[in-house]
Amino acid sequence: MKAGDELPPLEIGITRTLIVAGALASRDYQDVHHDPELARRKGSPDIFMNILTTNGLVGRYLTDHFGPTAVLRKVAIRLGAPNYPGDIMVLKGTVEEFDGATAVVRVTGDNGIGRHVTGTVTLTVPPGGAG
């Protein structure tokens, strides 16, 4: 692994089930994440994914690639276009730094309406770990 390496993209189908399951698994009961009518009343066309689920998906994207022995150290994300039901988000990652043990990976997640998330993940990759 070296700087500039790209991770294979990961497509996430944004289903209503994923949005609701993610909200509840993160104990986020804000109505905009499970109640379409109340979401619309607040100016959103539909329910949308909460930030904790996005955070979890970004973490999963990295550990899926680097394997169970990789250790997440930092995850920093910034959100943009919402993830609405029926959309697809494509996560992509580029290795920005790697010193033989610690990797810094730049992550983006684009959906049909724009860039849902940009982030930087720092993780420790044991010798022989995937990459």
Binding site: A23, V32, L38, A39, F48, A81, I113
Partner: peptide
């Protein structure tokens, strides 16, 4: 009055909006 949104830890206001999201989807954060 973005009255809700998203989750938040202890400190966060209960009325977090769908930020990331709501009222205006931002294609560009």
């Amino acid at each position: 009055r973005a009255s809700s949104g998203h989750a938040s830890s202890g400190p966060a206001p209960n009325e977090y909006v769908p930020s990331e999201h709501a009222p205006t989807p931002t294609g560009r954060e």
